[in-house]
Design a protein around this nucleic acid. Sequence first.
DNA 1: CCTGAAACTGAGACGCAATCTCAACCATGC
DNA 2: GCATGGTTGAGATTGCGTCTCAGTTTCAGG
Lengths: 158, 158
Amino acid sequence: MPHTPIAARFASAEAAFADQLRAKGLKNTPERLEVLRTIFSRHAHFAIEDIVAEMRRRGRPASRATIYRTLSLLAEGGMIREAVRGNGYTHYEHVREHHDHLLCVHCGAVVEFVSAEIERIQDEICRRHVFTPLSHSHQINGLCARCEGRRARKASRP
Amino acid sequence: MPHTPIAARFASAEAAFADQLRAKGLKNTPERLEVLRTIFSRHAHFAIEDIVAEMRRRGRPASRATIYRTLSLLAEGGMIREAVRGNGYTHYEHVREHHDHLLCVHCGAVVEFVSAEIERIQDEICRRHVFTPLSHSHQINGLCARCEGRRARKASRP
DNA sequence: CCTGAAACTGAGACGCAATCTCAACCATGC
DNA sequence: GCATGGTTGAGATTGCGTCTCAGTTTCAGG
Ligand SMILES: [Mn+2]
Ligand SMILES: [Mn+2]
Ligand SMILES: [Zn+2]
Ligand SMILES: [Zn+2]
């Protein structure tokens, strides 16, 4: 699953965010910057509680209101997007190469997948329906190998 | 978009539901039957408020609690499923041929689509990841022809 | 038919993620 | 300085969905 290393994107993410804020007449505050840094210093998938906890740990706490507001800005700016849904909190992820998700409904594990073929067919479908696609979410819910194995074992040997 | 006429499924839906209830030691009450009938007397896509309103109109009101509980049972029994997401209420639909959705983010219009090709690739992906698929949601968000046209017109002639 | 155990219903309380409110707080330019 | 206008955060609010529990209904067994 190749993607630009976090370090390499770091400066440009800050720069891009600064641009976006300037363009909208908004201010580049320490809180906003810290949310951005916290997000990009972590693994690509996260929920708001992760950010809250991490910022507290860093000694730079911010209120949920501010974090939610910043998440909206970052999503609007195309730096993050909503990823997996249906596990309580909304989960976000860094935007990089497009991909979709397998979600294990038992243990919550997430696996990413990409299919150029599917993307192509989607475009075809949209063309056929005269529909302008803006985004899509394609999520397969099921059981990962481990959870399926556990279930099968339990069923055969009660 | 061919599907079995409602009338033809009607009796069997009631019978299937009765079976399901019996199998689980649950009771076949008037309220549950009325929820079932209301659902299958309507267009395939609906939200709970539609059911609440329709049952009131019919002079057979039921509480939200009961309706939610019955929806769960029907979903569990494979007669309905969650359909489009991201419009406030959870939307359900009758289960018939499998299909996915285009959602116009501007006017809320929903278009259905099917692609045997995509389904096949999905299976392939699951096999490759040793993942047991149980369900999937594939939703393309964008602008329907009408909303796109309106937007384009407004942009060119302010 | 009774009758009792078990399930059901509905009004309203509750849970909870997400959003909103608003007073105090900057940051900036004049 | 100080006025302007965005920002923050504590806490209130919203709204879908779930849960509680007292009174009701179902239904199998007698
Ligand atoms: Mn991902
Ligand atoms: Mn549909
Ligand atoms: Zn799992
Ligand atoms: Zn539209």
